[in-house]
Design a protein around this nucleic acid. Structure first.
Length: 498
RNA sequence: UCCAGCGUAGCUCAAUGGUAGAGCGGGUGACUGUUAAUCACUAGGUUACAGGUUCGAGUCCUGUCGCUGGAGCCA
């Protein structure tokens, strides 16, 4: 007998196969039971008729998420999901599950996160994790096929790479160590050996922020290239993002559909991405044209809000016409959902005048805030590069611009649809004296970075790179509201388990 | 860290300061084509915790804890 997977069921049409998996759901009547079997590749309906006495008796004992092996004939059946079903002749339980906590109804975020180890079995998380895998693989394939060497950078480090306030301290024998925030300084060193390198690993930031964009443990891919300027770095970033989006579109239409992702906006992601400087961005923010545009958008959203409220009233009036209790409950749940969406839009609409004012009053020199990024990114339908930020707003290792000493040669890539920054990168300062001066200005201890400064003493070359936050990229590509869904076991300020 | 909201059955939610309830899930039974099947019956509660106000508190007040959303900061 052949064993089959649900994904490949069509190949076995007309044959008797064995399948192993978990019971996703079951409907049974006196003489027939419909088992929905889940095997990690898909879900398929298996019919057990009372004429197959032993199989039928076994099926009746099964509970949600029980593990089992079954055998039966594969046949085409338009009424079944996937187009095929199995007429089971043998049903063998492996373990009959205890009462499973996650029902096929709605649950709250906290409950689901507390049951993340089980929640992973549901179709939505499973779809996201498949897309995550493809995105990670696309990153690796992109670099591997472009002459990059993978360099694993340390996770235990002695010092901050970015901001000292967001380090996780670790007891390292008698010393204090920290969990790495970036592999960049090490990559700079490796790229002086191998030319083009990248690292891919977890990074840790002890930021006390509870938002839909933050994790304390997240994964980052960071390339670093010797003999590269900022334009080269941006071209690389552009190529990588396109490769990722193409890979997901090619492999995961089904998953994106399940997640309710609007695929059309993803299809627009292609080279070249628009590029503006920080100063351009400031001009946009302060322009009269932007103010008018934003007020028009605000007006449209206000109208949308009214529409949603009318829709809500509609639903409420429908309640009276629904007799089935559970259908009423379902309708009520829909109303609650709408109420939540209305509240969210209302908050947004209320915040907007503040954002418009912030933008109009923006002063050159400050870092772009979240609302500013949203304003900029909403003017484009694909990711946009913002370059050349004021040096005070950025890290010490970024190269000072020759044309304008007030700015550094850095770039942020802002994802469209309000997802904000997904990439941060720069050309690095390759001049020893300029770098030392900069470190003094920022009150960094030179001795702590002596090995890093060595790179500027022994054959320094122009070089640069960037970091892509994997979870933010997944969140954008899948159209998710919260990054916590993009990683199997999220670590946030308030969650260390499971 | 700050601001706001919430905490009631396994889950999602109801309940003018006045007898704690529904749907789903669980259990038992009926039913041969179901798609969150349907129908009947049934079990299930220290209303987060600690105080207080009141004849009476799930509801009001104070504190603690937890969660959610937002702000700041960031990938």
């Amino acid at each position: 007998m052949e064993s089959a997977t649900i994904e490949q069921l069509g190949r076995h049409e007309g044959k008797v196969v064995s399948l192993q998996g978990w019971l996703y759901g079951m409907r049974k009547s006196g003489k027939v039971a419909f088992l929905e079997l889940r095997d990690g590749t898909g879900i398929c309906q298996c019919v057990v008729e009372a004429s197959a006495a032993e199989a039928f008796e076994n099926a009746r004992t099964l509970t949600q998420e029980s593990s089992l092996v079954l055998e039966g004939l594969v046949r085409a059946e338009p009424r079944a999901i996937g187009g095929y079903e199995i007429s089971a002749t043998k049903v063998q339980p492996l373990q009959v599950a205890q009462e499973y906590p996650i029902s096929r109804k709605s649950h709250g975020a906290d409950f689901l996160m507390s049951h993340r180890h089980l929640w992973l079995r549901s179709s939505r998380p499973a779809a996201i994790l498949k897309v995550r895998h493809t995105i990670i693989k696309a990153c690796r394939d992109f670099f591997d096929s472009n002459g990059f060497t993978l360099i694993d950078t340390p996770i235990l480090v002695a010092r901050a790479g970015e901001d000292a306030q967001t380090l996780f301290p670790v007891d390292y024998f008698e010393k204090q160590a920290f969990l790495a925030q970036t592999g960049q300084l090490y990559l700079e060193s490796a790229c002086m050996s191998l030319g083009k390198v990248y690292c891919f690993g977890p990074t840790f930031r002890a930021e006390k922020s509870k938002t839909r964009r933050h994790l304390t443990e997240f994964w980052m891919v960071e390339p670093e290239v010797a003999f590269a300027d900022l334009d080269d770095v941006m071209e690389l970033a552009e190529g990588m993002i396109c490769a990722i989006v193409d890979a997901v579109l090619a492999k995961h239409q089904k998953e994106l559909e399940l997640l309710g992702r609007d695929i059309e906006t993803l299809k627009k992601v292609c080279k070249p991405f628009p590029k503006i400087t920080y100063s351009d961005a400031v001009d946009i923010l302060k322009s009269e044209e932007n103010r008018i545009r934003m007020e028009n958008e605000l007006q449209l959203d206000k109208e949308r809000l009214e529409d949603m409220k009318r829709q809500q009233e509609d639903l409420e009036s429908q309640l009276a016409n629904v007799s089935k209790a559970w259908k009423q409950e379902k309708l009520k749940a829909g109303i609650r959902e709408l109420t939540e969406a209305i509240a969210e839009l209302e908050r947004d609409v209320n915040n907007r005048p503040g954002h418009i004012r912030l933008a109009a009053e923006f002063e050159w020199g400050a870092d772009l805030g979240g609302s500013d990024e949203t304003i900029i990114s909403r003017r484009f339908d694909k990711p946009v590069f913002v370059t050349d930020y004021p040096k005070e707003a950025k890290a010490f290792y970024m190269k000072q611009s020759v044309d304008d000493p007030r700015v550094v040669r850095n770039m942020d890539l802002l994802a469209p649809e309000g997802y904000g920054e997904i990439i941060g990168g720069s050309q690095r300062e390759d001049d020893l004296e300029v770098l030392r001066t900069k470190m003094q200005e920022m009150q960094l201890n030179e001795e702590d970075y002596s090995w890093y400064l060595d790179l500027r003493r022994y054959g320094s070359v122009p070089h640069g790179g960037f970091g892509l936050g994997i979870e933010r990229a997944i969140s954008w590509i899948c159209g998710l509201k919260h990054v916590r869904e993009t990683i199997p076991f999220p670590r946030t300020m308030g969650r260390l388990e499971p």
